[in-house]
Structures are given as C-alpha cells and as structure tokens.
Design a protein around this nucleic acid. Structure first.
Lengths: 300, 300
DNA sequence: TGAATTCATGAATATGGCTCACGCACACCC
DNA sequence: GGGTGTGCGTGAGCCATATTCATGAATTCA
C-alpha cells in the first residue's frame, strides 16, 4: 500500500522553498495545520523524522534532504505530464522543450524557429539553456525533449543526428593586422585580447582545438554574454573573437568585421540534434528533425 | 491545483498489466467500481479519454499510452524512494543498485562483492543487467545508482572512474594448435568455432577490435550464456573464446585451458565505475568506489 | 438463449484530509 | 521582565471524497 503521495512531495518542496510551514501553506492554498498534520502522519508511518524541529524553525533531516531531492525531480515531471495531457485535450499538440548546450546552437536555432512555428502552430516551443546535470541528463530526466549540441552521444536510449556543419573562424575588426590573411597561427594571438562567451575555456573550441594544443594563451581574455555586444567590441578594435563563419558573414553586412581561418585547415564543427528514442515517433518532434535536416541539405 | 495523483498512475499501470479493471482492482486491493470512478473523474477533469471502451474491454488511447509511459517511469521511483526512507528508519543504510553493461564487469564485481558486503552489512546490493535505455539512461533515470561499464562517459552530471585494467585474451583448450603461441593473428581464427556471450558482435571486443578490422569472420559463432559452460566447451576442444586474462588464469586451475594474446600488442581494456554526481557524497557509495580503486592499486 | 464476465452508474457509506481553536515555545522589543 | 508577534503542534469535529454496494447494460461464449 503506497503511502508516499504527491502532496507529501509538494509540501517538502514548498517548505524548503519558503522556509516555513506557514508560508508553504499559503502557496499550497492550505492551512499551516494541514501541512503539520500530513507531515507528522508521514513521519509516523515511515518511522523517521523528516524535519528537525528546533524552536519554531524547520530544517530538513538527512531523510528530509533525500525526500526533497526526490520531490524536486518528480514534481516537475508530474506537472509536465498533466500539462501535456491538458494540451492533448485542447487539441494542441504539446510542447517542444529544446535544450541548448552552446551559443552557436542558439544562433542556429533562431533561423529554424520561425518556419517551424509556422508549420506547427499548435506546438509550443520552449528553449532552456541551463541544466543542473548537463544536457544529456536533462534529456534523460525529461526536463527537455530535444538537445542541440556540438557533442553527440551515440548510446542506447538516445538518437543523435547531425543537422548543421560550420566552420569556426576568428573575427577581426576593420584595422586589424590579420584582416585578409589566409589563416592565423596560434602564436599570432598571444598578444591579442580574446572575447568569448562566459563559459569554461575547455568548452571553447578556440582553446580546446587551437590555443591549448599549441600552448598559447591570449594576452587578455574577456567574457561577454551577447553576440551583438561581442561583435561591436570586435568592430571597434577592442579585441578578436571566435564564431561560426556563417554568423560572422550575416553580421558583416551591418558591422565592419571579417572572418579569418583558424589554422591552415580551419576548425570544422557540427551541430547535432538529440532526442530520446522513446519519442522517435512523435510527429511534431520528428518534423523538427526533418526540417533541420532539409535546411542542412539546402545549404550543401 | 494538482490533479494527477499517484493512484491514477498506479491504476493505469495495473490495467495495462492485467488487461482489465477487475483484475487491476484485485491487485490494488480495491473494487472494480472504485477504479472505474477514479478513472472517469480523471478523464472528466482532464477533458480527455484515457481509455477506448470497446465492449467490455479497455484499450489505452493515445493519451492513455502517454500516461502509461509516465506511470512506468515514475511509479518505480516513488516505490524506491519510499523503500529507501523505510531503510533509513530501520537504521539500514539503503540499497546500492549496480548496473552491469558487460560480462567481464560482472565477473569482476563478484570479486568485490564479498569484502564490500562484509564492510557494509547494512547496505543491500542489487545487480541489474538489462536496461531499456542503456546503462547511462538507467543511471540518469534513477533505476540504478552505479554503473559498471567498459564504456565511460565524461559529462556533467556523471562521474566515471577507472577501477580495473585487464587484457582480453583468446582462450584455447588442451590440444589446440595455438596453445603456447606468443600471439594469434586474426586470420588464424578463420577456421575456428568462436564461443561468445550472446550479445551483438559489435559489442564484443574480439570482433570490434580484432576480427572486424581485419575483415575476418570465424567459421562458426556459438553464443553461450554462462562463463562456466563456455570454458568447459573450450576445455573439451569444441571452440575458442575471448575473455579477460585474469579470469582465464583463475579457471586454469580447474580446467585445462590456456590464454593466448590477441594480436601482437594484445587488447587492453578498462572497466569504469560511474555514479551520479549528485550522489557523490553518499558514504556507502563512495566506499564502493574506494574499495574498487584500492583493489586496483593492489593489483598494480 | 442463458450464463458468465466486464464496465458504468447512482446512492450510501466511511475513511481520512482539512479546518478551527487553542496551547506552547521562541524571538524581539520596549 | 513582561508584553507581543509569529510559528508549530495537537485534538476535536466537520466535511469532502474515495470507496463500496447494489444494480443495470453490454459483450462474449457455450
């Protein structure tokens, strides 16, 4: 006979969030007394304390911490399932929750978003970019339904497909010495200011595949959040950056910037789309993959 | 206000399993009427049918299939959480659910099991070998707490650690021509009967790393489940097999078998232990990794 | 066609969740 | 130090609702 119910999880979660039974009760549209009763009953039935009662404050015990972790994992899934069923009922097709693991991925997605939204008006697209356990974890944990990543994983349970090829290039401003060069060697960046997105350097291709193997570091490293600002910095001669060639070419009509190949052979990259195999026959999901694939072939 | 409750999931699951409300009711210790009411109420509130009612049989609708998938994913996790809390209460430390992705992994685990069980009498060890979504999926999906695999995955959310190095060798029987040879070349197996565990050939190292690259196939391929029988077959001259060297040497005291290196350089393998990063501070889990690591160092 | 099985339905029932009212413990503050 | 505010615990009682009971309708099978 099951005794751990959804409300228990919800209470634990709400208390952890608000710090008190009273505040949690308000969020759940119940009285403080109700929560007190249900928690005590659960503790009695399990035979273990979920909360340390010290004075008038509640702190989770070890068991409470565990229960909280379970709640934080399962409640969102229940919520999503419910929402999805309601959408089914309304004739809507559901939500496509896309996870992003890299900035170029995001730029690429924007190009696909509008044709997709037009073709599937009943599908809500949602984009997430931060994952506690990484993109793969989010996919397995049903936080997202599709992962856009440069770093695929061919394993049972998941299906990855390449959808976009591009070249990662250096971007330089109007008066830069390297402008027009055939390509750039790592040493030539040792006196530069390098502008990148604010992520670990080992996740940046220009480091992992270009600078680090050569044992070179730029003179300065400046993290910038947004692509627009990054490129305006480059255009005004404050530094150089590394971005996909197609992206640079798009911006080149508005800003005075130019691409330069990284190394003699350039840095070739691919973007992959990953989905759960269990979802492989959901039509609107499949359609997205299909759209991505055909747009790739159109480029080639 | 949440409306999707545990009992709904349990009912959907039980009906799918037993095929009828009546049978499901028995399993859940409820009446058929209770289930009928609950399901109808849920359908009313969601505004969508979960079941096709055809005559006196129930078949899940599309929404029903979806709900069933959710139930099959979440109910086991709730059950496990409950069980884990009860163990907490009893002063037991919980369960260590280990997943295996390869046969040598299993053999290796057996050597560690008894010292671990002795050191942690309060921890139940459970071993699983089949996963719907692969070992990684099982780890992310909280079906298991630790994965033993030759195929690690260094990603956020997971932590892998090498715990065992071994050499994969060919095993031959008493009168075999290759016995005592320095090493064997792929061509020399083209006339042999090769005995392996019953898994895909591309998951077998002797194929993936030895025969297939050379374009060679053995004359016959015979799948056998258990190591004991496999080696008795080898000892009686019915074929050859590929196994870890240490395993062959252990059996060699009882059976007349001998190892032969595969290729000039041999096939080197590693076994890894993977856990969720979120679990990294659970002491009895950590202890297992520690035990595995020290036993590795003892060998070296 | 009748017997057996299965699900649906409405009314009755009872289990258990929730609220109310109150008491207690602690913190803060004049 | 004694108010005062705030938060949790507890018991009683109410009431919602999950469950059962009794029954009917539909289907399958002999």
């Amino acid at each position: 006979m099951p005794l751990l119910e959804r409300n228990h999880l919800a209470i634990v979660r709400a208390v952890a969030e608000h710090g008190s039974l009273t505040a949690a009760a308000e969020q759940l549209h119940l009285t403080q007394s109700a929560l007190s009763h249900t928690m005590r009953k659960l503790e009695d039935q399990l035979g273990i304390a979920i909360w340390h009662r010290e004075g008038r404050s509640l702190r989770p015990t070890q068991a409470g911490e565990y229960l909280l972790a379970v709640a934080n994992r399962l409640i969102p899934q229940l919520d999503h399932a419910e929402e999805r069923l309601r959408q089914f009922a309304r004739g809507e097709r559901g939500a496509l929750r896309i996870g992003m693991e890299c900035h170029p991925c995001y730029q690429w997605l924007l190009k696909l978003a509008s044709p997709y939204l037009a073709a599937w008006p009943a599908v809500d697209v949602d984009v997430k970019q931060k994952f506690q356990f990484g993109g793969i974890g989010a996919l397995f944990g049903y936080e997202i339904d599709m992962l856009v990543t440069p770093d695929p994983l061919f394993k049972p349970g998941l299906h990855f497909e390449p959808v976009f090829d591009y070249e990662q290039v250096l971007v330089v401003g109007p008066q830069h010495a390297l402008r027009g060069a055939d390509y750039v060697r790592p040493e030539q960046l040792s006196d530069e200011t390098l502008i990148t997105y604010p992520v670990d350097t080992d996740r940046l291709d220009i480091y992992a595949q270009f600078l680090t193997p050569a044992g070179i570091a730029p003179r300065r490293h400046k993290p910038i959040e947004t692509t627009d600002i990054m490129l305006q910095m480059v255009a005004s001669g404050r530094g150089v950056a590394a971005l996909p060639r197609w992206l640079v070419e798009e911006y080149a009509t508005r800003l005075d910037i130019a691409p330069v190949r990284l190394g003699k052979n350039g840095i070739a990259k691919q973007i992959f789309l990953g989905i759960r195999e269990a979802d492989a026959d959901i039509d609107y999901l499949r359609a997205f993959v299909e759209l991505a694939r055909t747009s790739r072939e159109a480029e080639a």
